[in-house]
Nucleic acid binder design. Sequence first.
DNA 1: CGGTGTATTGAAATTAGTCAACAGAGGTGG
DNA 2: CCACCTCTGTTGACTAATTTCAATACACCG
Lengths: 207, 207
Amino acid sequence: MHHDIVQRRFALETGDQLFRLGGECTALFQVCSGMIKTQRDTIDGDLIVTGFYLPGDLVGIEALSDRVFPCEAIACGETEVCQLDFDSLLASCASRPGLNSWIISAISCHARRKDCDLSWSGGQPSRLRVLRFFLDLRERLGGTADEGGLISFKVPMKKQDIARYLHLTPETFSRNLAQLKSEGLLLVHKNEFVVPDIGRARTATGN
Amino acid sequence: MHHDIVQRRFALETGDQLFRLGGECTALFQVCSGMIKTQRDTIDGDLIVTGFYLPGDLVGIEALSDRVFPCEAIACGETEVCQLDFDSLLASCASRPGLNSWIISAISCHARRKDCDLSWSGGQPSRLRVLRFFLDLRERLGGTADEGGLISFKVPMKKQDIARYLHLTPETFSRNLAQLKSEGLLLVHKNEFVVPDIGRARTATGN
DNA sequence: CGGTGTATTGAAATTAGTCAACAGAGGTGG
DNA sequence: CCACCTCTGTTGACTAATTTCAATACACCG
């Protein structure tokens, strides 16, 4: 989609930095494969993860207005991204209304996602936050059905990153994950996750 | 600014609904005076506030992509808003590059704000969340300096709303507020708030 | 002067965080 | 190929924080 505005496409390895906090920003990035996480230090020195970006997602939207990145972006696993320069993007928008509404729509989606994140990243008990996180991730990743019709999905990020995203300590996250496994709501093997009974899992989240 | 794209301007009373959850969305709203809050039910039945919008802020950005509001918007106190229709907005963008980048910039600012909210809406102890909330609000509201050079600001929303925004119970919020008052970090009279010593308050937040 | 909704306060129960020790996986070098 | 090292994740006991439940105070409006 919109191949003519892609400036370049490149690959990142695990841990590679796509951009750094405070860096000047002249382009957006769209994830093609893999995963990007964004993170930032809090004012009391903790590190928190502010988002995970999957294929199709745009990274860097927060920097469009003042062109400075408010966070750093790191690849979780092997990742490919496309680079979309602002200036050529804006220039193309002028001549192509469709492109313009595509961008606005994409940014709006991003805002909606963040907004929804706010709904469940705080407040509710940690066990629900963890379960919802995996249900949401499963949905976003799509996953591939195996012979039994179950969908497994690969989780490339470190557990510590998930904990930092959910505002939990690694210990609390680990305990909750163990509990969810023992309840049979999640099956875990290495980085492969399976939700054996979606209906039951949804019920457990209160839905 | 951009008067020609304002479709209409109207006033709301306390508690009036600007739009409802799931409602069809054909326009953005810009707050002219007063305050708008957005809220939503969580899947377990709690009500949470997802944002407070002050004069200049755009409300409804999350709905741009699929044109359905993901939350409801309510006026906190007497409020005036401008309505900006999507279609005419997009049409105007085509002919006016400046308008287009203004919109993109505004949406990006919104995203950045949400992103920063995520940084402090969870995790940190409740006392810091409360203090930071008021420091942030003070900065956004601007406030008016009195004879002593201190800036007081009026807080139109209910305390319960703030609690729901910060993912705290009203009780916890109330206790923290009482503590901040007793520490002399906040002065409160009715809805008027004063931060007597900004430096000390910032230090207390860990900054 | 009630009356209703909102805010505060207290004590108990629940939850998450902290600190410390241990286990496992992955990588490096002998 | 194995031993070792390091980083990450797990588990346990303890501590600190927040929520919950219940009662009371306060403010606004009729």
